[in-house]
Write a protein that binds this DNA or RNA. Sequence first.
DNA 1: CGACCATTTGATATGGATCAAGCGATGTGG
DNA 2: CCACATCGCTTGATCCATATCAAATGGTCG
Lengths: 238, 238
Amino acid sequence: MLTQTAIRTDAFRRFVPPTRNSAPAASHALAGPREREPLAHSMHLMGAIMSYPRNAEIFGENEPADYLYKVISGSVRTYKILNDGRRQIGGFYLSGDIFGLQFGEEHSFSAEAITDAKVLVIKRSALTALAGRNAVIARELFALTGRELRRVQDRILLLVKSAQERVASFLLEMADRASTGNVVELPMSRQDIADYLGLTIETVSRTLTCLESTAAIEVPTSRRIVLRNRSALNRLNG
Amino acid sequence: MLTQTAIRTDAFRRFVPPTRNSAPAASHALAGPREREPLAHSMHLMGAIMSYPRNAEIFGENEPADYLYKVISGSVRTYKILNDGRRQIGGFYLSGDIFGLQFGEEHSFSAEAITDAKVLVIKRSALTALAGRNAVIARELFALTGRELRRVQDRILLLVKSAQERVASFLLEMADRASTGNVVELPMSRQDIADYLGLTIETVSRTLTCLESTAAIEVPTSRRIVLRNRSALNRLNG
DNA sequence: CGACCATTTGATATGGATCAAGCGATGTGG
DNA sequence: CCACATCGCTTGATCCATATCAAATGGTCG
């Protein structure tokens, strides 16, 4: 049941290629993002929505980083292939998240759809031009980058911890971002998780069964995890 | 020996407490940074220089992040103590580097002088206010953050590699930033390096002697390392 | 049903951590 | 000026967490 057929019936119906640049004037009255978020609002006005099937590449490492991306539905991973052939995942991006915040001329990571995904694509130059005129937008864009920086710094702290700690932290992070109550639906495979945490798939799997045996979590389906004892996970997490 | 005595006799004579906010009009004619770098120039105009002896704390984790810092001389480490007592070093900052680029209300790392250091301290609010009026400054500030983001992302790639790769990468990084030819003068201890790379001091030491035995480097003094074969290091680095 | 793929589980190997000792430089007091 | 304590670093021996190799299980789709 991995097909994602539904055409969303909300404000975002446009499926134009991202080569276009200008915003259609007609979008203004549609139920866009809240006015409390001028950046989000502007992005929706300026961007084009693209659909990507599962595992499709959104952009490649070393491609010019001319666009910024916002996940509308589905989920996305960024990654890099290391010279020894291993894959390091840079991050997972869920509905509402913005990715492609690179700063050089080129992307330093590749991006792929984990599940079928709809992604809002915004020309970077348009956004920075707007930021130049609008201080509020500029500040929001800046804050966004700051949050990304913090997120990456936290990853560094993660990567020096034990396997249990990494997996526990990962689950808590996903619970914050993608849970309904204590039920976490993971869009990504074990391999994705392993490559994100710098572990092997076997270690991730074993750690999950270990956490299950200590009643910290339940794993009714491999992609569904129920947090039964957050404080135990938090203790591991440190 | 925690006193802060030295009075520098160059262009920056002011030793005002960092609680002040405005820039003195008189600074304009002093030999500041090149005009090609408006941000650096403004920072020097707005900031106050502070001296820190070896190992002195510059700011602490969870202190309000009201200031931005630029290393004038000496070197600085940022770090965080993990709940298990280990220390993770967030970064090393050498002469010319800017640190304290946090975005929350509070610092997420502490900062200490590795060697005696002089640091330019700038009120963040003053700088962002300036950026609001001056698009060039804003862009530079943004680029700065982007570079920091890239740097941290590269650390993530480092932390999933083997000990040899981590040490080799570290040496090449330091060679880029702090070398005269092939001679790298390390301001930091083995323990600092270990805590930066997520290794133990013993592993760092052993790895260095291993690299020395393969003629990739020489270690005439524990703090001085000569790169003899960069391509070998690059190969390890990947 | 049968093939395929993701995941789990098991057995073994290994890189780096840990524990412990030795070494060399620096500084201090006698 | 030397004996000695101290500190940072290196070297050695052993242990352990995670990787690696291998096989079994289970869910999905044609």
